[in-house]
Amino acid sequence: MRSLISILDLSVQEIDELIAVANDIIDNPKNYAEKCHGKKLATLFFEPSTRTRLSFEAAMYELGGNVLGFSEAQSSSAAKGESVADTVRTVSCYADIIAMRHPKEGAPLVASMNASVPIINAGDGGHNHPTQTLTDLLTIQREKGRLNNLTVGFCGDLKFGRTVHSLIEALSRYTGIKIILISPEELKLPSYVKQDVLQKHNIEYVQTTDLEAVMPELDILYMTRVQRERFFNEEDYLRLKDSYILTPEKLQTAKSDLAILHPLPRVNEIAVAIDADPRACYFRQVLNGKFVRMALILKLLEECV
């Protein structure tokens, strides 16, 4: 029985297989409509989520399965002080697979140690969010046709953004990847990610504060939200947030086949005017999230036929 807690739980070959299955689901959805008939997915969301929970639920329904669960801790026995271990032991009696979001880092790992069904980490605080990374990888593969030989720019909050760290980890296992880190000084990629991932895998990388200067180089631009609460100085925030609002003007020097990704939710870091640009992939990315979760559920529920 497999669980997915971190993106590194999957080999590159397994990720490539999931992407292949997701692409086949997109091309032939009817072939998958009854694959999980009679199976149940439990969505245990101990904190609110819009995209991820609905994406998991839509994924299971489109596989012909059913869904049960809760969407906030207050409506579960966690409010009575029940442990994660006891909760998942109980839910294992009702469901065939569990998708869990929890505000505490490591909660899904604890769940996987105690459940008798596969656990999918649907986000544990600021730690891991592997299905977002799978979503990002599927989107890059579909937009660019490959996951190697790419120059990928990450822009915004690179310090606290879990999606950034996970995607860098995942991409570092492919060849010909160049990473460009675009952020204010205050929100630079943590040194441990540089040491443990980029330097360890000999990934070429550049750090800059100037998005426009590196724009012509990029194959992928992964935008993130700069969070006001991270700044000690309001003036710094106001100065820096404006430099990372992506506008049509800033895209003038970009490649014609640039792919702009964003894990969403967006606030103001991508101008709405860009939504109509074919290079804006973030809503296609949302859709890809459902397909790659379908592929993942199929993989983890090996008996799903």
């Binding site: 442990s83 271990a85 505000p103 505490k104 880092e105 490591g106 790992l109 604890v110």
Partner: peptide, 28 residues
């Protein structure tokens, strides 16, 4: 923010992740 802060009965387990620099990281 670690789960061990709220679930007191969990063992505190650290794994060696970088022998050269003698780095241990919490498994959770």
């Amino acid at each position: 923010r670690c789960i061990t802060t709220t679930e007191q009965e969990l063992p505190h387990v650290f794994k060696l992740t970088d022998a050269g620099r003698q780095v241990y990281r919490c498994i959770y």
